[in-house]
């Protein structure tokens, strides 16, 4: 009966998909004259629920599928970001809470205390070892950027490892795409900034589709070598967009994840539609932020449209 898992949750999610914003809704929001009209449009579409935060949606998904470890992989990026925030706050003495992102698998209330006491055993298994190593690296080198790069690479490695260990095909593909996008971005930036090999080797994670050594060597040779490598690995579109603008590349990264999410839309069972819905809510919120920020800076309609991410519905 494993193939019929989460029938209840998936059906509920399908009913909720009706409240997700469509391309037409986004067009109307882009064209809205001000905050009042935007709020009226959102309220008309979403009713009393308004825009649900990713945290609310996550809590709802977990209430339907509390035992799914696979779904927790979706929050690993937030978990490791929070680890970085907590480590930095320890060093700088600043309040970490404002830098935390939610939802997360971590107990944010006690995170700083756990790290201060080096009680790594109280952290979830996936972050335990990274927390210990990152702390030691930070104390040893006092290099916040190196420590961040180490955590970023570990994030990708653990997302890939856990998706292989207990994730389905969907989650494995999600992990691959996440790793590829992040690695390309890191390698490109390092190449432009002429970072040394030692830094690249810490910052780049590697994946089945993009070998770490090849990526590091290409980045050290220069951006042209990097583009040639990407084209050879089937990421010519990513290479082209990276040459054009960082914003376009970021959009491409989000869009490939959304294209993956869309493959789960037609499924009636399993964790995939739940994960896809969470990714859809994240994309929707990112689009709303883009509209809001672009408006604030007086961007025209065409610019906003260029930056809009692909939607789930």
């Amino acid at each position: 009966m494993s193939t019929t898992k989460y029938a209840n949750a998936v059906a509920a999610i399908k009913a909720m998909e009706n409240t997700l914003l469509t391309r037409n809704d986004m067009e109307q929001l882009i064209g809205a004259s001000g905050k009042a009209e935007t709020e009226a449009l959102l309220s008309a579409k979403k009713g009393a629920s308004e825009t649900e935060s990713a945290e609310t949606v996550w809590k709802m998904i977990k209430s339907y599928a509390p035992e799914s470890r696979e779904l927790e992989i979706l929050l690993y990026k937030n978990d490791f970001h929070n680890l970085k925030a907590a480590l930095k706050s320890m060093i700088s003495g600043r309040e970490a809470n404002r830098y935390y992102v939610r939802p997360t698998n971590l107990d944010l209330e006690h995170l700083s205390g756990i790290l201060a006491e080096k009680d790594y055993g109280s952290l979830p298994v996936h972050i335990r070892e990274t927390a210990r190593e990152a702390y030691e690296l930070l104390v040893r080198t006092s290099d916040g950027q190196l420590s961040d790069s180490f955590i970023d690479a570990e994030t990708l490695r653990i997302i890939q490892k856990d998706s292989e260990d207990f994730g389905g095909e969907f989650m494995q593909r999600y992990a691959q795409l996440t790793a590829v996008c992040a690695d390309i971005k890191t390698a490109y930036r390092c190449s432009r900034m002429k970072k040394p090999r030692v830094f690249l080797e810490t910052a780049v994670c590697g994946s089945k589709e993009l070998d770490k050594d090849a990526l590091v060597n290409a980045a050290l040779e220069g951006t042209e070598s990097l583009m040639t490598l990407l084209e050879g690995a089937g990421y010519s579109e990513a290479a082209r967009l990276l040459n054009e603008s960082a914003a376009q590349f970021e959009k491409w990264c989000d869009d490939v994840i959304m294209e993956l999410a869309q493959t789960a839309r037609m499924k009636s069972f399993g964790a995939e539609p739940l994960a896809a819905y969470y990714l859809a809510v994240e994309a929707e919120q990112k689009n709303l932020r883009i509209i809001s920020v672009c408006r604030e800076f007086g961007a025209d309609r065409e610019t906003i449209n260029e930056r809009m991410r692909t939607l789930y519905v």
């Binding site: 029938a7 209840n8 998936v10 009636s268």
Partner: peptide, 21 residues
């Protein structure tokens, strides 16, 4: 019994969001 139960699970999921269905 198994099939009616399975559809019941899915139906309950929809009704929990939209009881009119």
């Amino acid at each position: 019994a198994r099939a009616v139960g399975l559809v019941g699970e899915a139906a309950a999921g929809v009704v929990s969001v939209d009881p009119s269905k």
